[in-house]
Amino acid sequence: MTPDTAPERRALADRLQEAGVLAHPKWRAAVEAVPRELFLRPGVFLPADDGHWRPATALGTDPKEWSEIAYRDECEREAKVPPTLLEEWMPAFLAQLAAPGAQVVHAARPDGIQ
């Protein structure tokens, strides 16, 4: 069963609003409404302890950890290999690009290319 991530969505919206990147209340409503974890399937690559990347999948990850992965708003670029296609900083970046009243579509392929 998929856990309810409404609290994580609200927390992400709070962080983005405190950072000043949500220019309009509709942006906050969108962040709170869209379950990000659905866009991470089938999986992502995360930094491993050895400086490389490790795969993580929804099926192979504890649901609480999967939610934490989905609602990060940070960029981890310390790995020794090229960065993955998972970009945790994307919510803040997209919110900064949008002018009040603008419509934005964030399209990503199933393999994570954004």
Rank of each mutant, 00 (worst) to 15 (best):
M1Q: 10
P3W: 04
D4R: 02
A6S: 13
A6D: 11
P7V: 05
R9I: 03
R9G: 06
R10Y: 07
R10V: 12
R10T: 08
A11T: 14
L12C: 13
A13E: 01
R15W: 07
L16D: 03
L16H: 03
Q17C: 04
E18G: 08
V21W: 10
V21H: 04
L22S: 01
A23G: 06
H24T: 10
H24V: 01
H24N: 09
P25R: 02
K26D: 06
W27S: 09
R28V: 02
R28H: 04
V31Y: 01
V31I: 15
A33T: 14
V34E: 05
R36L: 13
L38Y: 14
L38R: 11
L38K: 13
L40N: 09
L40I: 08
V44Q: 04
P47D: 04
A48D: 07
D49W: 03
G51L: 05
H52L: 11
W53R: 12
R54E: 04
P55W: 10
T57W: 01
A58G: 07
L59E: 10
T61I: 02
D62F: 09
P63C: 11
P63K: 10
P63F: 03
W66Q: 01
S67H: 14
S67Q: 15
S67I: 05
I69H: 11
A70W: 06
A70Q: 06
Y71P: 00
E74F: 03
E76Q: 12
R77Y: 14
A79R: 15
K80F: 07
V81Y: 05
P82W: 02
L86Y: 05
E88V: 00
E88P: 02
E88F: 04
P91F: 06
P91L: 00
A92D: 03
L94N: 13
L94Q: 14
Q96T: 10
Q96M: 13
Q96R: 09
L97D: 01
A98I: 10
G101I: 00
A107I: 13
A108T: 15
P110C: 06
P110F: 04
G112I: 09
I113C: 15
I113E: 11
